[in-house]
Design a protein around this nucleic acid. Structure first.
Length: 556
RNA sequence: UGGGCUAUCGCCAAACGGUAAGGCAACGGACUCUGACUCCGUCAUUUCCAGGUUCGAAUCCUGGUAGCCCAGCCA
């Protein structure tokens, strides 16, 4: 048995300590998105972290929508979020919850606070509350309504529920400490009046609890033991603990914060993604250049690759920006032994084998080493006229260029050696035709060892090739200039999308379906686009290119 | 300028007072019917800085510095 030392992240250490010291018997985590948008790679980290922890410690993982503010929430997002989480592989079993289903309990909890003298109804306007709150450096001052009697507060709060007040007219506030150095503790608002239709509770309520009050209650009700959130909530933890303490829960949940996942040269953050979509810079929230879960799926990333990525990134409290190359590594790693390697020509130029019989076609057998042996075997038609990629031929090759050039011999993958004897150009100097001769003795599988060639190139037989359209994606963000300008606008890369319309595939691609992914030999991994199914051509998105250690010298 | 948090290789990230793991990237080299894959090798005498405690410090103490977060009736 391998005794690989796997270090534990800081959350695992906390959990194990809690378990050992009896602070909890089992582990229960949760993923609590607000249904106000689509999930992205950052959420994937949270989902997989929470789910992974529950699995590791034989506990439970709850799915919960934190839908306490109806202004932004929609059922449409609920469905999309659930689909994404399922796709990622996190299983909440029968524990799908909505914070809005706890509104009655939250109301009771608020009443309890009022009865304890720990909450009061405040008539100050939003602006006044802000003024009374003080600043980062100056303490706040007490609201003039802070000392209302318990009876009055009880009555007023009931009136709030019964719709006697307009939006903004009154709020319920926790009575904590207006001089606290932590602004969140300066008598925070815990309930507001909002006459809004809620996606789940309809018109039943016209008061809604605030996150800081609702969240600990949700956790406590569900028996969540470790409430894992991101760093910006650290300042809220004292309030979280206050709520849980004042409400006297027997097994108080514990909030733990970790650093968000940021990716280099990628737009994260809902606000900016939304802007890109609205301004038409991308194709929609699942545009493959984005890193929403749906975009990654459409691009061809697998759940396994995302899981691997998240695990590789680790969990800590230091702000970090992960290199995109790490994500690319993960998808390559996941796909390389799983996906068939087929030949595709993205920028075709015709290659004619002068000494190959005019009308002859033959079928060659090609084998790749894949996990699944059957997937790795295939038959490919070969004939006199082929397409090869333009970059696999050069009139005047630089040093160390091993592919085709006048007089050079290379292997056509899975087929024969061919030697370039001639080529034709049009008026503009563009190569239009390459002429070769082939050596029948060098056929793949013949065991020929007479001589070696340094280059192997891919090809498709012109007569049987399938037409295709291929989309290549680059970073959305201009790397040189950085992500954002001073005015908040973004430096977009104008070449983030390239559409290649004149591509050719070997016949084994026939029948490929949406989300099917392949390795185009020598070109990288590609996925059939789920949005485009065309009668005339298959449409592919590039998932990731292959590593290449030979780069053409840049033209002067 | 109040409070909270964070600083370990280009990027993530371990190390919990016992003498700086690992991964990505990069660079060499071997292999190769994909310049892929695979395989081997190189890559922090030093942990933001300056002092101190200690036989011994990335870890403890003191004082700095830098970055992130907080003044929604958002989450």
């Amino acid at each position: 048995m391998e005794n690989e030392v796997v270090s534990k992240n800081f959350i695992e250490q906390i959990i194990e300590k809690d378990l050992a010291e009896g602070h909890c018997d089992t582990v229960c985590t949760r993923f609590p998105p607000e249904p106000n948008g689509y999930l992205h790679i950052g959420h994937a980290k949270s989902i997989l972290l929470n789910y992974g922890l529950a699995q590791k410690y034989n506990g439970k993982f709850n799915m919960r929508f934190d839908d306490t503010n109806p202004t932004k929430e929609k059922t449409e997002f609920v469905e999309a979020i659930l689909a994404d989480i399922k796709w990622l592989g996190a299983d909440w079993e029968d524990r799908l919850f909505f914070a809005s289903n706890y509104f009655e309990q939250m109301y009771e909890a608020a009443v309890k606070l009022i009865k304890k003298g720990k909450a009061f109804v405040c008539d100050l306007s939003a602006d006044e509350i802000r003024e009374y709150r003080g600043t980062l450096t100056e303490p706040g001052k007490n609201s003039p309504y802070r000392d209302r009697s318990i009876e009055e507060n009880l009555q007023l709060f009931e009136n709030m529920r019964n719709g006697l007040y307009k939006d903004g007219e009154k709020v319920l506030r926790a009575k904590i400490d207006m001089s606290s150095s932590n602004i969140n503790m300066r008598d925070p608002v815990i309930y507001r009046v909002a006459h809004l239709n809620h996606h789940n509770t309809g018109d039943k309520w016209c008061i809604y609890p605030m996150y800081d009050f609702a969240h600990p209650i949700e956790d406590a009700i569900e028996g969540v033991t470790h409430s894992i959130c991101t760093l910006e909530f650290e300042d809220h933890r004292p309030l979280y603990d206050w709520v849980v303490r004042e409400l006297e829960y027997e097994k108080p949940p514990k909030q733990i914060e970790f650093a968000k996942l940021y990716l280099k040269n990628v737009v994260t953050g809902k606000r900016y993604i939304k802007k890109l979509v609205e301004e038409g810079n991308v194709d929609g929230w699942d545009d493959p250049r984005l890193v929403s879960i749906a975009a990654l799926r459409r691009r061809g990333f697998t759940p396994e690759s995302i899981k691997m990525f998240v695990e590789l990134c680790g969990v800590s409290k230091s702000q970090s920006i992960v290199d995109y190359a790490m994500l690319e590594y993960c998808i390559r790693e996941d796909l390389k032994l799983k996906r068939s390697r087929l030949m595709a020509v993205l920028d075709p130029v015709k290659l004619i084998i002068d000494n190959y019989p005019e009308d002859q076609m033959e079928e060659l057998e090609i084998e790749n080493n894949l996990e699944n042996e059957e997937l790795g075997k295939r038959k490919v038609p070969f004939g006199r006229e082929l397409y090869i990629d333009r970059e696999d031929f050069m009139e005047n090759p630089p040093k160390k260029y091993f592919r085709l050039f006048p007089g050079n011999e290379v292997r056509l993958m899975g087929a024969y050696f061919v030697k370039c004897v001639d080529y034709k150009k049009d008026e503009t100097g563009k190569v239009t035709e390459i002429h070769c001769t082939y050596d029948p003795e060098t056929k793949c599988g013949s065991g020929f060892t007479g001589r070696k060639v340094k280059g192997t190139i891919h090809w498709v037989a012109a007569r049987t090739a399938i037409p295709a359209e291929v989309r290549l994606y680059e970073n959305l963000i201009d790397e040189e200039k950085g992500v954002y300008n001073e005015d908040g606008s973004m430096n977009l890369n104008p070449n983030s999308l390239t559409v290649l319309k004149n591509c050719w595939l070997e016949p084994n691609f026939a029948g490929a379906k949406a989300y099917d992914s392949f390795q185009f030999v020598r070109q990288g991994y590609f996925c059939v686009d789920s949005h485009d199914s065309r009668p005339d051509a298959l449409v592919f998105n590039r998932i990731v290119s292959l590593k290449s250690s030979f780069k053409l010298p840049k033209p002067e």
